[in-house]
Amino acid sequence: MKLTKRLFLGLAAGSALATLPLSALAEGWQPRRPIDFTIMAGPGGGADQIARFVQSVAEANDLTNRPLVPTNRGGGSGAEALLHLKDARDPDHTLMVTLNSFYTTPIRQEGLGVDIEAFTPITMMGVDPFVLWVHKDSGITTFEQFVERVKEMDGGFVMGGTGSGQEDSIVIAYMAGAYDLKIKYIPYDGGGAVAKDLAGQQIMATVNNPAEAKGFYEAGDFVPLLAFSDERMEAYPDVPTMKEKGHDFSYYNQRALVGAPGMSEEAAAYYREVFGKVYESDEWQKYLVSESLSPLPMDEAQTRAYWATQVQNHRDLLAKIAN
């Protein structure tokens, strides 16, 4: 018995050794251990949903030979995740699912010493537009009525959002500046909580991603007034955009995968191929439609250029808010 067991083990080890270099040669770089899949937000939010969706598509189609291990590191508005990637001990096995705090947090907290230009672009999974919502009982049906109502209430109009310096507050601040509106802004700790308090009419309007407001919209509780997208959204063809109103402003939350600084070219190429396949999968394409995400495919160089413009835009917008 002992002999056969040893023989069996030997054979198994031998065959493993024999096939390993071959497959490595055939397919280039392969992950050698589980992949750290850091999420820049807490469980349950948009970024978290997307991370788990991507993970399950990758798993269902057997796209990686090592598992993706999602970990939520949402602390400090993503500062925790940024630091984790910056100081990653094994950059070849460290990825992150981002939102726009990828741009804003390093600007707002310079002490972190995070330079996002050093991060490795992997795949842009899509961008999430913002829409202005009110409750149907408010009687407001157009953006013009909204502006009028806010002005009438002279500072008494209450909007909710996810906090000063967060995505929606940037949108609201722009809107308030453009139309000279006085809005009372109540910060919450997540888009879901904001939508819930609009449904309960604790607040009067929100700027939510369509995914967060969709359930209430379909039930007829929420009325969309204005989209902050470049063009009218397919799911909301009757909702005008800020651009149509004559203001050159659009704002999206990016849903992208990013590698740690110092990731090798080979590893980056491997992940781009894997997540490119996820992006093209039927599952992801359906998700883009059902959650009203806009596709925005770009390669590495385009992504880097996009980052540079986004950093500049956010610097300007945050400076405007601060004044």
Partner: peptide
Amino acid sequence: LGIPGSPTTAILLGGMVIWGLT
């Protein structure tokens, strides 16, 4: 309401969206 009452239900909610339910 589509609003999670606890961290666990937040993840369940994510699951439902992935399965194609609103």
